[in-house]
């Protein structure tokens, strides 16, 4: 493999990584803070893609679609938390899995009834549709570079928010000392709804960014959810920093696994990685609960 190809494939790995981060950041916070396994997180990703595609078709602008779709998915997420998921926090994980799996089926059928069984089209915005020559003779799609930049921007923003703001501090405290935070007078219910909405917004944003590359169809959130769960386990449940490191690790490992290993082995690559990490660090790379 030539040097140029290594660079391109590393970029591809990074791009998959930031996508996975957007999905797993919300998942890991919800799991870490509310102790809730939310399988339906992928449905929010799907809704992000469908809503953005619809708004884009209506307004003709990708950026307006983004401004409308992301807050809307956040709202849907918060509504979902208040109406359904809130009741599941004290149940055991099996009940949560069952209930949120039902939500997947519900959202898939809802989307099918609303948008029809055919896949939906979403175009790349005109200004980002070409390729950029990242190295002489090596073109790379401008849109994918945008994903890397936008995703990294969200990661930095989230890092600063969690690490440097008062609300972020409460969220961190909530992840490690749940009862104590409540005892200190923080409105835990409101905090939970907010955290869930934040995760939903990021999932919606990921779906929206994926829309122009992928076929916007029912069930599109499920394949990426499996990877997102691997990411949060490797990264350490509840840790945003861990999710970022693990997302990039999984993204790069999956990309190089696919091109260097035979098909049977490449589909196992990230699970072998997960087993290896858990072998040495059973709590994940950056455990949130000390």
């Amino acid at each position: 493999m030539s040097m140029q190809l290594w660079v391109v494939q590393t970029l591809n790995g990074l791009q998959l990584g930031v996508m996975l981060f957007l999905m797993s950041a919300g998942l890991t916070l919800v799991f870490g803070i509310m102790n809730l396994i939310n399988l339906a997180h992928g449905s929010l990703y799907m809704l992000g893609a469908y809503l953005a595609a619809t708004f884009q078709a209506l307004t003709g602008s990708f950026f307006i679609a983004c401004l409308l779709a992301v807050p809307l998915v956040m709202g849907i997420g918060m509504l979902m938390e208040m109406s359904i998921l809130r009741r599941l926090y004290d149940r055991d994980h099996l009940d949560q899995v069952l209930a949120t799996f039902a939500l997947i089926l519900f959202f898939n059928e809802l989307v099918r009834m609303t948008w029809g069984p055919q896949a939906y089209f979403m175009a790349i915005p005109e200004s980002l549709s070409g390729t950029v020559e990242i190295l002489p003779g090596i073109p790379y799609p401008a849109y994918r570079l945008t994903i890397v930049l936008a995703g990294s921007g969200v990661a930095v923003g989230l890092y600063l928010f969690i690490g440097r703001t008062r609300l972020g501090m409460i969220i961190r405290a909530g992840a490690t000392h749940r009862e104590m935070v409540g005892a200190l007078g923080v409105n835990i219910k409101l905090l939970y709804t907010f955290v869930f909405g934040m995760g939903a917004a990021m999932a919606g944003f990921a779906g929206m960014m994926a829309g122009p590359i992928l076929s916007v169809e029912t069930g599109m959130g499920e394949p990426i959810m499996i990877l997102a769960f691997v990411v949060i386990v490797i990264g350490g449940i509840g840790s945003v920093r861990g999710a970022f490191a693990a997302a990039v690790l999984v993204g790069v490992a999956d990309t190089f696994g696919r091109i260097l290993l035979p098909p049977a082995l490449s589909s196992m690559a990230i699970y072998i990685l997960m087993a290896g990490v858990l072998c040495f660090r059973p709590q994940g790379l950056f455990p949130a609960h000390g």
Binding site: L16, L214, I259
Partner: peptide
């Protein structure tokens, strides 16, 4: 490629 694989960036570079 894996069945239902959504992204082909790595394969297209090869």
């Amino acid at each position: 490629t894996k069945i239902n694989q959504p992204d082909y960036a790595a394969e297209l570079a090869q």
